[in-house]
């Protein structure tokens, strides 16, 4: 049996979580989380870690040069830099609204890159 100690990143509370796995790598127990999101995070973290990604995208014709954006759901951790390449290539015309989809289904992850601010 193995155990992995994690700090939950699902919210700013940062619960210390322990994930217990048997010899085949199967998760037997998750301990230390204070909500179901922590359980989900811990299980994902030991098998296929994911992160939500935030950055900015170039705006054309707007009051600001860039608009902040985020991935609509977490994406595989190892794809963060590849996703940045796509984000750096993208642009969106003003006006921009919160939730506007800038890149659909980035890198086939199922997550969209969406605007997170209003730009006139």
């Amino acid at each position: 049996m193995t155990e992995r100690k994690l700090i939950c990143v699902a919210c700013p509370r940062g619960c210390p979580i322990t994930v217990y796995m048997d010899d085949s790598g199967e998760i037997t127990k998750v301990e230390g989380n204070t909500c179901p999101r922590g359980d989900t995070y811990a299980r994902a973290e030991v098998t296929h870690p994911e992160r939500s990604l935030t950055s900015t995208v170039k705006v054309t014709g707007g009051k600001h040069y860039v608009v902040p954006c985020k991935s609509s759901t977490a994406i595989p951790k190892e794809l963060l830099f590849d996703a940045m390449v796509e984000i750096n290539k993208a642009s969106i015309a003003a006006p921009v609204h919160i939730g506007d989809v800038i890149i659909k289904d980035i890198l086939g992850t199922g997550a969209d890159i969406v605007a997170t601010n209003e730009i006139d």
């Binding site: 939500s52 950055s55 902040p68 997170t116 601010n117």
Partner: peptide, 25 residues
């Protein structure tokens, strides 16, 4: 909040994870 574009805002108050500008909005 306008420059805090990372997420992590609003979990307590809105029960969802927002970026700074979204929380402000």
């Amino acid at each position: 909040l306008e420059q805090c574009i990372h997420t992590g805002f609003g979990l307590t108050y809105f029960g969802e994870e927002l970026s700074g500008p979204e929380y402000a909005d």
